[in-house]
């Protein structure tokens, strides 16, 4: 009951001062923990770095009392369940989870909820109803590519689709989104489809293999990590470079920049930013603050356009992925936009 009234007050306060950062005092004593199951690739490392950067700034500003990250050593469900129970015992007010399994942690998550701890899961989400979920809409990520192309090419044309790793959920979802987009925009036709495994070298070989059998290709729809390879394959075959949708990787953005400077080449780039961990952080903070937050949120993609290319490229490490960290205001926009 008490929380409810505070919540209402906070909503009023937030509505009153949405533009400025609001409600700093309310969560200054709260502690938020990140329970992460795996840190073994560059995306996860970037995710942890973003958490640390935003979290420590929030602590320094007095927004929260602590924002500690914990990673399990072995990426095992039982280990992460024990870790979450330990975090409950350590008295954290909210636990942000990137889960080893969507179902296997539900028991521990339920324990946390029952103990009054706010649980926010992102990327690797949990299905326990009492937790908040920040999910990735991979389908939409496929669809926006076709929608962009529909804007650029009003006459439509032939498309080449580069898929990811066969048999993986993410690959099926993005591809389903692309096909849904093509169905809505009948002027496009997918002439060929290859698996690039989200790797430039694999994508280059696959595209080079299918190109001789294809008519003129207007555009290439991709899943990220394959755009640069596709461009190289078109160049090697001596064919005109189509509009290739990029996936925010450093090599892709670099190539795009070169083409833009040389010939005014235009395209777009889309992927998920590792900084989504910071969105989860702010969502947890908002829930602790008593604000009403929908149980299921969707991560916005990080889209790079012709205008933001230079800025994004400058902020991306060589060999890395373009990243964006969320501020409190960005996060409130995501929450209320849902």
């Amino acid at each position: 009951m008490k929380i409810n009234t505070i919540g209402k007050l906070c909503i009023l306060a937030t509505v009153g001062s949405m533009a400025t950062t609001s409600a700093i005092a309310d969560t200054s004593g709260k502690r938020i923990a990140l329970s992460n199951n795996y840190a073994g690739n560059s995306w996860r490392q970037a995710m942890l770095t973003s958490w640390d950067k935003v979290g420590s700034a929030a602590v320094a500003d007095g927004v929260v009392a602590a924002a500690d990250a914990f990673t399990t050593a072995e990426n095992q469900v039982t280990e992460q369940a024990a870790q979450i129970q330990n975090l409950i015992l350590q008295g954290y007010d909210a636990i942000v989870i990137n889960a080893a399994s969507p179902e296997g942690l539900n028991g521990a998550v339920k324990e946390a909820c029952d103990a009054g701890v706010v649980v926010v899961s992102f990327d690797g989400i949990v299905t326990e109803p009492c937790a908040y979920r920040i999910a990735v809409d991979f389908k939409q990520m496929g669809k926006v590519q076709v929608e962009y192309l529909a804007d650029r090419l009003s006459d439509g044309g032939n498309l080449l689709e580069i898929r990811g790793l066969a048999g993986v959920f993410v690959d099926d979802e993005i591809s389903a989104g692309i096909h849904a987009g093509v169905e809505e925009n009948a002027q496009f036709e997918i002439q060929g489809s290859v698996h690039g495994d989200w790797a430039q070298d694999v994508a280059q070989k696959a595209v080079a293999g299918i190109l001789p059998s294809l008519p003129e290709i207007k555009a290439v729809v991709t899943q990220g990590g394959d755009g640069y390879g596709a461009a190289q394959a078109f160049k090697a075959a001596g064919r005109p470079t189509p509009i290739i949708v990029m996936g925010n990787r450093h090599d892709e953005l670099t190539w795009w920049k070169e083409q833009k400077d040389a010939s005014g080449y235009e395209t777009m780039s889309v992927s998920i930013a590792p900084g989504v961990s910071t969105l989860a952080f702010w969502v947890a903070q908002q829930v602790l603050d008593g604000n009403s937050v929908p149980q299921d949120l969707t991560v916005p993609f990080l889209e790079i356009t012709q205008d933001t290319l230079e800025e994004s490229l400058a902020n991306t490490q060589a060999g890395g992925v373009a990243n964006v960290e969320y501020t409190l205001d960005d996060s409130i926009a995501v929450i209320t936009g849902n």
Partner: peptide, 9 residues
């Protein structure tokens, strides 16, 4: 305890 399983649990 976990309420569900997976093959590597």
């Amino acid at each position: 305890l976990t309420t569900s399983a997976d093959a590597n649990i």
